[in-house]
């Protein structure tokens, strides 16, 4: 951020994304300082745009910088340099708490390891994002139940995660991602901890959500999984190697 502000911003940088663009990045850099002399360049100037309603997969081998990119897209981290607009918000220059707010409102995470609260019921897990956005208890419950119905888990909403199968847990996580009606659903290897059949089930769920108008960004290294997307961004050595449209 600081580096960007030292250079006089070009026209392209200052102009925000056009209408209908949900994600726009301009020249994203991420450098990790590993001690005094060594700096690792995880991202070297990544620029791309994702339109509303797109189903995009980000693919790359481990060490390619795809996790870093996911963290940036997910507003868990800020770039060392460059700009990132999410749903019209210039999020690359926000503070921690502002980023938390963006995560709450605009992003629905689905993690490889589900990341559910073990002690809470499925319903409560789905309610969590709503708690942090200050939705009243009654509305919270309604919306959480609605989200669980969408992933066909309404009958299991009072079960704790350890009483659910892997596939069911991931569906709870999807419901949690959906519940605050985010701009994008960001899935990080969502099938990584599931067997092939269950993984396929989850991918069908994502297909259905995409048909329902949701924006989906999928981070994976598996071709089969990436094949569900309509566009694949190949990452290699911190750069976009190939931007592939799938029919």
């Amino acid at each position: 951020m600081t580096m960007a502000s030292q250079v006089a911003p070009s026209l392209e940088e200052t102009i925000g994304p056009a209408d209908g663009i949900v994600i726009k990045t301009h020249d994203l850099w991420k450098t990790y300082e590993m001690g005094e002399a060594i700096a690792v360049q995880a991202l070297c100037g990544v620029s791309f745009e994702i339109e509303r309603g797109e189903y995009v997969a980000i693919m790359g081998p481990s060490g390619s910088g795809k996790s870093t990119l996911m963290n940036l897209i997910g507003c868990l981290d800020t770039p060392s340099q460059g700009r990132y607009w999410l749903n019209g918000n210039l999020v690359s220059e926000l503070s921690d708490d502002e980023l938390a707010h963006i995560r709450n409102k605009e992003i629905g995470f689905v993690f490889q390891t589900f990341n559910l609260l073990a002690r809470a019921s499925a319903l409560h897990n789905v309610e969590l994002p709503l708690i942090y956005s200050g939705v009243t208890a009654l509305e919270r419950r309604e919306r959480a139940e609605e989200a669980l119905r969408k992933v066909e888990l309404a009958d299991r909403m009072h079960h704790k995660p350890n009483e659910l199968s892997g596939g069911q847990r991931q569906r709870v996580a999807v419901a949690r991602a959906l519940v605050n009606d985010p701009s994008i659903i960001l899935a990080d290897e969502p099938t990584g901890n599931l067997d092939t059949a269950t993984g396929e089930e989850i991918m069908k769920l994502f297909d259905r959500l995409h048909e329902g108008g949701n924006n989906i960004v999928l981070v994976t290294h598996e071709h089969d999984i990436a094949a569900h997307a309509h566009r694949i961004l190949h990452i290699r050595d911190g750069r976009i190697d190939r931007d592939e449209r799938v029919q």
């Binding site: 607009w85 019209g88 918000n89 999020v91 926000l94 707010h101 963006i102 409102k105 200050g134």
Partner: peptide, 23 residues
């Protein structure tokens, strides 16, 4: 959309109010 940061602040005021602290 281009007035991104202003809108973020605006959003924050809309929903991250007192009630979220309470809940």
């Amino acid at each position: 959309a281009s007035v991104g940061k202003d809108r973020a602040a605006q959003l924050r005021h809309e929903h991250h109010g007192l009630y979220s602290v309470w809940s």
